[in-house]
Design a protein around this nucleic acid. Structure first.
Lengths: 188, 188
DNA sequence: ACCTGAACACCGTTCAAGT
DNA sequence: ACCTGAACACCGTTCAAGT
């Protein structure tokens, strides 16, 4: 007679995500995750293929969460206002989940990366607002410029590169406003 | 009678760096590095404290190299021209040493990070040119904006986020020129 | 059908013993 | 003074045996 299912892929991914944020990626071991869901390490392999698959699922979950946060930040009323709101939500989310943010944006083994489709959803809110501002033609290039700055800033902040004092928030807002103005010259 | 020194910290760091670039950070194991310098793994501990110390030395070497590349890119004649040259050299260097670039800029364990002094040297050429353009007062903020964009762009490029086609080089140059213009409005 | 203990290969690291 | 083999704790992963 079959033993009852004592855990699930969903529970395992959730445990791995908490472990990631509380103790860093190297603390996400099969043994530690198994302990948290109440089974032994070998049992995890009935629910996920291997550790790479587990981290891949975590990355996917993180991408979906970020996409939702950015979607919610835009109201659709004014593209400039939406871009400022998206940029702020992006930075705030990254500060609240720095390890997840790093997992999502760092160079990690190919198998850990989020599905291409989810990566695209992650920048959808930004592309929508940018498109309204600059037109379809220039959307790709302009969105890349915008995302590059936002990601670069947050990434350096999280990596501790801005330890020399100053006011990061002000520099971030300044950069975002500068880019918005440059991308959509005056009345658009 | 003492056995002759068969390797050195310098040789070990060089081997680790090559291994990092050719096979990724996870391939930089004590055994693999030891093989390459012709000793057994335990012998490495006579030259470096542990693996974290070894990676710290690699990161320091990488920071020094990048600082030199950026210094060499600036001629000192025209700050705008220098910033364009520095930005291009920065991107080119990162493309040539993507694993080293990632090690230097990613969120890695504190013990692996480059010495603070070397991190500062890494952005010195940029700060010098920016200072000429915007004055001492606004240098810190402007340099952060500039570095954030350049790093963000290159980082997303290396992580494969720009897989959707388009011309990355053009978007990069466009972003850099936009920032230079925004930071130093017209004749300065 | 899922869970477990035992086993294996592979890590980083320590240390006594060699030269 | 440096190098080595042996050993230890800890990884991920497989698999036969349990229920």
């Amino acid at each position: 007679l079959p033993t009852p299912r004592r855990t699930s892929a969903q529970e395992i991914v959730a445990a791995a995500r908490e472990l990631l944020e509380s103790s860093g990626i190297e603390a996400v071991t099969m043994k530690e995750v198994a302990d948290r869901v109440g089974v032994k390490a070998p049992s995890l392999y009935k629910h996920v293929r291997d550790r790479a698959d587990l981290l891949h699922r975590v990355t996917n979950a993180v991408a979906i969460e970020l996409a939702g946060v950015l979607d919610d930040a835009a109201t659709g009323a004014d593209p400039r206002e939406d871009l400022r709101a998206i940029a702020a939500a992006f930075r705030q989310w990254a500060h609240g989940a720095p390890a997840a943010y790093t997992l999502l944006t760092s160079r990690v083994p190919e198998e850990w990366r989020a599905d291409q489709e989810l990566n695209i959803r992650t920048s959808e809110a930004i592309r929508n607002s940018i498109a309204k501002l600059v037109g379809e033609e220039r959307t790709l290039e302009a969105a890349r410029t915008f995302v590059a700055f936002a990601h670069g800033f947050v990434s350096l902040e999280l990596a501790g590169t801005f330890r020399l004092g100053g006011e990061p928030s002000a520099a971030y807002d300044f950069g975002i406003d500068t880019l918005i103005s440059a991308l959509a010259p005056s009345g658009s």
